[in-house]
Design a protein around this nucleic acid. Structure first.
Lengths: 351, 351
DNA sequence: CACTGGCACCGTCTGGGGAAGAGTGCTATA
DNA sequence: TATAGCACTCTTCCCCAGACGGTGCCAGTG
């Protein structure tokens, strides 16, 4: 609220804040004026540093846990650091290449396999928890559809999308369909819609439904009824994959079992985390939520670094890492950024 | 090793051991002679109890953490308790019925859905971690198979088994197959093998392959090549589902973050736990591994209670719970037992 | 005027000591 | 054989003092 982020900190204050954040990220302990003076490489005395620190504290960028400990960056301080002081360390070429190959290989296992692989790689590269939302189905194109009758007005629908992904769901229909009829419906849909995006197919079916029902023949009425259910938006599919949660147990700030429990419950609960990831999907580029900025209790002391990945320019999902606020942003931001690009291009349907 | 389990403990010693185990399970703290005398409901003095406790300690059933704390049952003591002293508390009728309905409902989601549901229910009923191995595919019968060509001598196989379960895998073939040819192969397999167990199908194909290749026509050669790969034993499928891991964080004995981390890593690693569950599958009825009995470091202080579930009399998988050794066996054994039966009958293909 | 050194002050952390409590083993006894 | 008494042991808790690291302020200096 009060002191604007763009507050014109002097060059020295910025240097000191950057150094303080580095120290804190490295050691996780409050940093005092003496060590900060050394760390920053400035030829000034601790007393001078203290004066600057007092200013920084006044602006709300740093705080001291108690009267006579060193200072710790606040969420706001980290925000300023991330926005204005951060200089990222680009990933090494060969690391990127390894990453690309791993993703390309695991993409063979289908889209879910790719998501697993990506979250795994994220967690390994960062030593944090990696998260990847499963790609939205909307940009997917239909390759093949098949129906099998189950008992009691239920139909098993099998969709092959994007060349190799298989999805299946049980449809509850208004009347009984027999095998032959379902076969005809599938034939029609395959002939008409193979290679078309699912969202487009849905549109077509809905508009056919809204047209005069009388003018549709029996087959088309069935096609519309069954197809509309089969291609309905898939809510259950909006999930995500986590890997390397155990990495989070290494950090001091999570050594409290109660906190840890809450966090892990949030992971299995999925709801809150999913909301948050959805929010990240709204903007392009690397998004960073620091501590309480996310608006969730559990995220106190934690940060989320994400980037969305796109297929054919269309946003398809989000991936990133979760870890303590004192993570090495300079290393992690590029990792998340690059991974998102690589996942996007691995998903490219032209491949 | 030394004192045999069937050691003839006197009636009073047994009563005291049972009471001690109950106390310990309830409070998790060493129990002293005074409180034990009260708890056991015996009209004897603490001093007498102490004498008996000294015996029990000598036999290795109990131990004291240090000179002047109370006693705690050893793994061996718990084993004796479970084998000889345990009187289970049958589940309430209405709980069983609720369980049955939930499982029947979630079975609609397919076999994986049932496994998820079962582990969830186990963890909720016991406040421990629930585990369920996904059913072996062997007893499954084929309903329908379909092939789609991918690029570069790869074929996507889609199997519908047990009415509603869909499995897909990518086959690497020796030569290119086109859509029409794959269609013919699928037609043949569907006509010949619909309703047959996968293991039988595999046998048939293997024996056809071993027969004189010359005598097979072109179609049959293709059928054998593709089909043999499609119905090959699925190793990746041998997984399991865990639910309620966070429940384990509540227990004192796991409040050490390092221990917790190891345990959770074992969960995600899957290997060790899977070995253990496999071992449980070898015997019928409820199996209990107490602490180090399992032979794994991580299981120190933990117990595993499992039962295998069967379909049509054939063992299909294992389910159970993992929790601290001081779990309420009298309540938990029946829960695991009943759940295994219910899961088995929910999977019954005749339904 | 910005920077520095000095100094009093303040919390945390650590280790020791002492008292309380819980429980045991041993022994004498009915 | 069961019991009561007693000395002993070990943990846990609390309190205290001292060391340590750091701060805030102030007076002095280029």
């Amino acid at each position: 609220m009060s002191p604007p982020l763009e507050h014109d900190l002097g060059e020295r204050a910025r240097t000191l804040l950057r150094a303080l954040v580095h120290c804190y990220i490295r050691d996780g302990k409050p940093v005092g004026s003496r060590s900060l003076a050394r760390e920053a490489g400035l030829a000034v005395s601790p007393a001078t540093v203290r004066n600057v620190m007092a200013d920084l504290e006044h602006y709300g960028y740093i705080t001291s846990p108690h009267t006579s400990a060193g200072r710790v960056p606040t969420d706001r301080g980290l925000r300023f650091y991330v926005d204005c002081l951060l200089q990222v360390q680009p990933m090494g070429r060969e690391t990127v290449e390894r990453l690309r190959r791993r993703l390309a290989r695991d993409r063979e296992e289908g889209t879910d396999g790719l998501a697993d692989s990506a979250s795994d790689l994220l967690s390994q590269l960062t030593n944090l928890a990696g998260v990847v939302t499963v790609p939205r189905r909307e940009w997917a194109v239909l390759r093949h559809v098949e129906f099998l009758p189950l008992s009691e007005r239920r139909v098993l629908a099998i969709l092959v999308i994007n060349q190799r992904d298989v999805q299946n769901r049980v449809l509850h229909t208004d009347r009984e369909f027999d095998e032959a009829e379902l076969q005809r419906i599938a034939n029609y849909l395959n002939a008409e819609f193979a290679g078309v995006e699912l969202s487009r197919i849905r549109e077509s079916l809905v508009s056919a439904m809204q047209a005069d029902q009388q003018r549709l023949d029996a087959l088309m009425r069935s096609v519309v009824e069954v197809g509309e259910k089969a291609f309905a938006e898939d809510r259950t599919n909006s999930g995500y994959v986590v890997a390397g949660q155990t990495n989070l147990m290494d950090f001091e700030e999570l050594s409290d079992v109660e906190r840890l429990r809450e966090l892990f419950e949030a992971f299995t609960q999925k709801r809150d985390i999913l909301h948050l990831l959805d929010r990240c999907a709204r903007a392009d580029g690397v998004q960073i939520y620091i501590g309480q900025e996310a608006g969730y209790e559990v995220f106190d002391g934690l940060s989320l670094v994400t980037a969305r990945y796109a297929v054919d320019g269309e946003p398809a999902g989000v991936l990133g890492v979760i870890g303590p606020s004192r993570m090495a942003y300079d290393r992690i931001v590029p990792i998340v950024d690059v991974t998102a690009r690589l996942v996007g291009s691995a998903l490219n349907p032209s491949r």
